[in-house]
Design a protein around this nucleic acid. Structure first.
Lengths: 377, 377
DNA sequence: TTGTAGGCGTTATCAG
DNA sequence: CTGATAACGCCTACAA
């Protein structure tokens, strides 16, 4: 025991020195040499479920450890046609909503043995340049939380590159998709607000080309029409804090006064709207005006805001996207699937959510109703 | 002209069909066949600065486009020993500060031809598992915004893997580093607050093992001592919103009352502290209490907060980290360099930054001074 | 400027 | 269970 062990160690350190001298990398061949087996034996030792005897496995692993050997993923992927990398395309990383998505996605994917190669898109126009890189890097699949054109999606098909769209949809296109039902979310929000007696609605929308914002808006408009309420006034926004303030002012100007409720395309815009209303214009929220957002980002829950908003079940959605993508990768079949989740309503305290009640002993004829919100159990 | 062109196109579509039939990938060999040149000619066409005649280059590029050929990065990296990927290790992606870093880093790196392979660390303990992957994937270098042990760093050296630490330092270790001078930042903050007359300081620190928070705290403590002020009371925090509130309460309990100023290890904690003070405890900020944070994350600038804080020059720092790493990668020499940046003071409105002045006609004997802050030009 | 030939570090196939 | 041998797709001397 004390006689045979030194040999492998001595041999390893010696061999290691020669590797360093030649400035090469440590390869499976080096390990094989030290362990006294063939190179293919080494390879098998690193493949789970391969048939290797216990004793060789031990010798090989020891030699590998001694030499600091780690298999080269590039060489492996060349032959296995699998890089174990997934590209994640994401616009506007600065948006508070995406970091959470990224963290969650990465966690889920690494659980499935995949690593995330990040492709942030500063502008939509970058897509073309970025896609060229995506093809080069031989990723196993792509999760896109960015706007892709029909042509782009077609290229994915042509190259047989598995793709899952996250919170984006493409009309008349059969693509794997994980989304939140933003239409329903918009409808839900209007229903709640309308039930509480709001009639004059303003909407601060997202950018024109955003599917998500458009769906939310469409849901809201639809529901308002169903309820026989006047159509909302819509102003554009850029998803950022300043858009909230600018949107509020634009709405007031266009509507000739403060609306009953403002629906914002994102929490950050809602917060901007809220801050402007309270600190700049002196509007009482939710007394005079109700403000609601979307996404339930962390700040929406802070005491200063306690925003009325809708939360997407992000962890579930990320999990769905990751597992869906991996299923496509493994099956090699391009079964198309759409997983749609529902948003969860967060009451918060920036919207009046219960009908105004009239004090029973006072006159009840006033059409506009009293201005004091009353909590109802 | 109309006679020779069809051939290459016809040949391409034909060949493409046969590739599809065999379910193989398009390789440079296919392109060579269609273009009627050797495989090495194709290779050269995709290498900038190689010597190829204009006509072959055109023919090759046309064939490549027809076949949707894109070079395989895995195969290339096998021989060039360069993957053009950089690993970014980052803890706590949920922290508001990191997304900005990630976006900026990724931008800078892609400008230098590198892509980001993301390794988020949920817990510090994950480092070992994650590093194994880092070695496998043959990244060209690593930027670590995560805590690494001396042993870890040693392993980087052993494997000759270029490494740049971002906002972390290692005592007695010569590693490439890009940091902000957090010590100076802590000192600066205390100087400004002390000049305005604050005497009783509380600190809500970051986690024990965070270099950044420790440096900030050390700077503050040091400067207080220099100024002959009493040492601050320090309570721990976890960098999140709730830590701010908990920290505030702990400080009040330990100090037997509200301190003059509280320095928080991060903006989010400062915001938590602020919200708790104002909305829960009814403390007037900055009338009764000054609150300051670090990092100048986006919400710190919102109207509800307008936080007094210190901004790190993130774009510059990201740029420095990216270019430093690439320099190391290209030079193959392990020149050690440390680039240190200064934080910028953001006045905000949550700290009283000017000495209390006494109204000249009133009694001036009161040792405690009036409670009304007075702005000084 | 162009083609030939060898190698990068694995995995996969198939005898033994 | 083990070892030779052929890919995988590309880059790069070297020779023409």
């Amino acid at each position: 025991m004390t006689k045979s062990k030194p040999t492998i160690e001595v041999c390893a350190t010696e061999h290691k020195a020669s590797i360093a001298r030649e400035a090469r990398r440590v390869t499976s061949y080096d390990v094989a040499l030290v362990a006294g087996v063939s190179q293919s034996a080494v390879s098998r030792c690193f493949k789970p479920g391969a048939s290797v005897s216990k004793s060789t496995h031990a010798r090989v692993m020891k030699a590998a450890a001694l030499l600091d050997y780690i298999p080269n993923a590039a060489a492996r992927s060349l032959i296995t046609r699998r890089s174990n990398m997934v590209a994640v395309l994401v616009t506007n990383l600065a948006n508070l909503y995406y970091p959470e998505l990224l963290a969650e996605l990465s966690k889920q994917l690494s659980g499935l043995g995949k690593r995330v190669l990040l492709f942030p898109l500063a502008r939509e126009a970058d897509v073309d340049r970025v896609l060229a890189d995506v093809w080069q890097f031989q990723v196993d699949g792509v999760i896109a939380a960015a706007r892709l054109s029909a042509e782009h999606v077609a290229e994915f098909e042509r190259r047989r590159m598995p793709l899952v769209l996250f919170n984006r949809t493409l009309r008349d296109q059969s693509v794997n998709t994980v989304t939140c039902d933003h239409l329903e979310a918009g409808r839900m929000l209007v229903s709640r607000l309308a039930a509480a007696g709001h009639r004059r609605f303003g909407i601060i929308a997202g950018t024109e080309d955003s599917t998500v914002a458009n769906e939310r808006r469409r849901g809201a408009v639809e529901r308002l029409a169903e309820l026989g309420l006047p159509p909302p006034v819509v102003v554009p926004g850029e998803y950022d804090y300043n858009s909230g303030a600018a949107g509020l002012k634009a709405l007031i100007a266009q509507m000739g006064g403060v609306p009953d409720a403002i629906i914002c395309g994102s929490d950050v815009m809602a917060i901007g709207c809220l801050d402007c209303a309270r600190h700049e214009l002196g509007i009482d929220v939710p007394g005079q005006l109700s403000v609601a957002g979307f996404d339930a980002v962390e700040p929406s829950n802070w005491l200063s805001y306690n925003l009325t908003t809708l939360r997407q079940p992000m962890p579930k959605m990320a999990c769905a996207a990751a597992s869906l993508l991996c299923a496509v990768i493994d099956s090699h079949e391009s079964q198309v699937e759409r997983r749609v989740f529902s948003a969860q309503f967060i009451e918060g305290a920036t919207a009046r959510l219960h009908p105004l009640t009239h004090a029973p002993t006072l006159e009840t004829a006033s059409a506009t109703g009293p201005r004091v919100p009353v909590a109802i159990m």
